[in-house]
Design a binder for these strands. Structure first.
Lengths: 351, 351
DNA sequence: ATGAAAGCGCTAACAA
DNA sequence: TTGTTAGCGCTTTCAT
């Protein structure tokens, strides 16, 4: 304990509201009222308190305030990994939105680990944070029960459908559809898809499944066949998986005139990999990504991609969580959808 | 207030230690002792308490614990911007190190804003966090006085020399020296430096100044002249600044056979820009960056760069801040230096 | 080995 | 308009 007792004035003591009140010759309640900008206070009192505050160098004790108010004005954001630019950009957007509303953000990285995701949710009961925004990667709908509880929570992405909490998502299907349609309009007929699924997953609970679906829908609508050989499945969605996919494609001797990578990182890797085989993007092969990372504007060539409107995702998530906090309980399991759009750049120019 | 009073049993109440104690037929002190794993407790008591804990579904109230203990086991990390991959990767490393030691991390983004950096430091007195790790960008040594105070703090980077707090830094001079020396050994004689300073800044308090210095030292040692025209000054250090620099270089009609970009993002932009002018990397121009971002392994071409050993930086910072927290006060203004090394890739292969 | 009780610093109901 | 006071839930002496 660093505090000293009233008897021990030799030690540099923490200044409390009592000290300020004594200094100003007022009650602690008035000091508290002043601090919390409550109305009905004489200017004279106001000045006396301001002066005492100044002279004592008082600082509120957040822990005491938190205990009393039952709130911390702290949100917890759990993402798989900040090193994945998508999540770094998302986190930044969440910080910005939270800050606007006077909230701080405890960031937690679950490192793509299911147990860590579960632990993060479980430990929310002992809330140092008022609410949790979680972007689950390893958790699926079958884990929905884990999310029981009444603390404010928002789920990002579609992997936890069925969880009794608001979801913020983008239309992955529409995004993938737009990307594929764009390639078709550009004249491509053999479009490889990197990071997708060869077999449809009818559960449709992962970005992987839904983006593949959007791709298939666009092919279907254009009267083009779906060729499972053109689907390169990957373990993760990193740029390394992307370059590996490019190699796989080249080694397979398949014909293809475009690659739709299900995220930008893989698209970067794909472009890198194709270059190693002497293929030119977009002349020999067009490439489209998904995420619109900042840096995708300056890759070589710059990347055509799907913009998921991250700032909107962040805003919807923060607004929802704060509404829940103010309501004092978990919101209903409804779905908030952010807009989505195609951004054309060098890797597949508009036609 | 969500808590209910003893009289109001209809409302679902928060379970407190009192409830657990009553349920187990013991005192709250024993429950607390159990929770904090204190010794000298009969197995019988232990079992009774465990059972009561289980049945009541008790969760500690962190705010109450924090108030009592004067600690929050929360660190605050302030970085300029998570969208800059360097900081995202650094943040991830800090989260990992903090987590290992049982600490959570409140991440704050100062968005390269001096006022925000100052506000972040100022608001630390009202510590919801036990300590602050700050990576200042806009603050300089002249602001050192702002950092007065006794709360635990660690400064990342060299911009705040003179601040009375431990610094964790890398040898920017050695890094830049290694990069330049590598290019010279590869036969380059006209090495442009992007993001540097034309005029030496004798204060030597910014990465910009010190990396430029390392570059000049290497030239000097090799007997090569320093040509200010080869220095492209940039406002920021983004990939956009990098591509703009490439344009500036090309438009200037200067001769150059290599570019040393003072960070990886600019190096990406430079490579992108050079390509637009039909120059090949590394055949026409070698390019070296600084930071070793994950993605620099898969740029086109992959980037030769300086590895600042971020995990070491994070570990040193977290170890220092926790030592300060345990000591109960700010550490001395000493300097902790992380190792640094050159990583050769396609943009400038080893010779 | 276990329990009683005194606060940690603050907020908010209620009094004055 | 200002002051008094009762806790928030927990940890920690100090008794027993």
């Amino acid at each position: 304990m660093r505090q000293n007792t009233a008897k021990n004035d030799a030690v540099k003591s923490t200044v409390t509201m009592v000290d300020v009140a004594r200094e100003a010759g007022v009650s602690v309640a008035s000091v508290s009222n002043y601090l919390n900008k409550r109305p009905y206070m004489s200017d004279q009192l106001r000045r006396r308190i301001a002066k005492a505050l100044e002279e004592t160098g008082y600082q509120v004790n957040i822990s005491a305030r938190n205990l009393r108010s039952g709130r911390t004005r702290l949100l917890k954001l759990a993402v798989p990994n900040l090193r994945q630019l998508y999540f770094a950009e998302l986190a930044e957007d969440v910080l910005t939105e939270a800050r606007k509303r006077g909230y701080g953000v405890i960031v937690e990285s679950t490192t793509n680990d299911r147990d860590r995701e579960i632990a993060t949710i479980r430990s929310m009961g002992e809330h140092a944070a008022d609410g949790l925004i979680i972007s689950p990667l390893a958790l699926g709908s079958s884990d929905a029960a884990l999310l029981d509880g009444d603390f404010p929570m928002v789920v990002l992405g579609e992997s936890m459908f069925g969880a009794r909490a608001p979801h913020v998502m983008i239309s992955n299907r529409v995004g993938a559809y737009l990307a594929t349609q764009h390639l078709i309009e550009a004249g491509c007929r053999r479009i490889a898809v990197v990071g997708g699924l060869k077999e449809p997953d009818h559960a449709m609970t992962t970005s992987r499944a839904i983006r593949t679906r959007g791709y298939r829908d666009a092919l279907y609508e254009a009267g083009l066949p779906f060729d499972p050989d053109l689907v390169i499945e990957t373990e993760e969605w990193t740029s390394f998986d992307g370059s590996a996919a490019a190699s796989t494609l080249m080694d397979s001797n398949l014909q293809f005139d475009a690659v739709f990578a299900l995220n930008d990182l893989m698209a970067w890797g794909v472009m890198h990999g194709l270059r190693d085989f002497g293929l030119m993007v977009p002349d020999d092969v067009r490439v489209v990504g998904f995420d619109d990372l900042d840096e995708s504007r300056v890759t070589t060539p710059s990347l055509t991609t799907i913009d998921p409107h991250r700032p909107d995702i962040a805003r919807l998530a923060v607004e929802s969580i704060i509404a829940q906090i103010e309501a004092g309980s978990r919101g209903a399991g409804d779905t908030l959808v952010a807009p989505i759009s195609l951004v054309c750049r060098e890797s597949s120019p508009a036609v």
